[in-house]
Amino acid sequence: MSYVLIIGAKSDIAKATAREYAKHGYDLYLAARNVSELEEFVNDITVRTQRTVKPVELDILNYESHQSFYDQLGEKPLGVISAIGYLGDQDKAQSDFSEAKLIMDSNYTGVVSLFNIIADDFEKRRSGFIVGISSVAGDRGRKSNYIYGSAKAALTAYLSGLRNRLYDSRVHVMTVKPGFVATKMTEGMELPKKLTAQPEEVAEDIYKAQQKNKNVLYTKWMWHWVMLIIKAIPEWKFKGISI
């Protein structure tokens, strides 16, 4: 079988997803910055699954490098999954624009730059899948993380447009909206147990949903309903709530 390209491969969700795809017989390109840190993990998947796993260096903020990054992949991947994200510091981002910009660029601009290149190739080939990990935080802006939320909202809109554009070329685009996931990003936060997924659960959900060509995936599933309720609260009321 052929390669799946995983972007932001050092993320806990990405690692679980990489294992999931390798388990199902896919070879992998794992792209991350300081990718040498992934050496032991690359070996882990190889020992577990006997698949070919190739680490590739990628900084999502280095836009100029994206074309050559994609060109250097010998065999082009059948699909790409991006787990890149940066939660950042909301308070800091409110007063320090460089933090706000880093949040927007890491979650949105950088991904757009790379996905544009990949989407063109897949469109020409008339095959492939593109999975972007956005967030429920993009469904409605909240005071506790609206800079991050707005970047994810932009990514969600981008992915839905891309899905629309590539429909005729039979390239499938899936938007993943995790709720809480126990990863490095959320380490130290007190998360409600029932609503918090382990990275492995998210990975399984992504694999299954992608295989079924789902458009939007909420994970855990109950986040779909949680967000329906949150989105249904009228703005005049919402603005007064502390969440």
Partner: peptide, 17 residues
Amino acid sequence: LGANIVNVKPHDYFIDF
């Protein structure tokens, strides 16, 4: 269980076979 717990489970790499 005890006062100070060392969390080993995240160290889950396969090394060689």
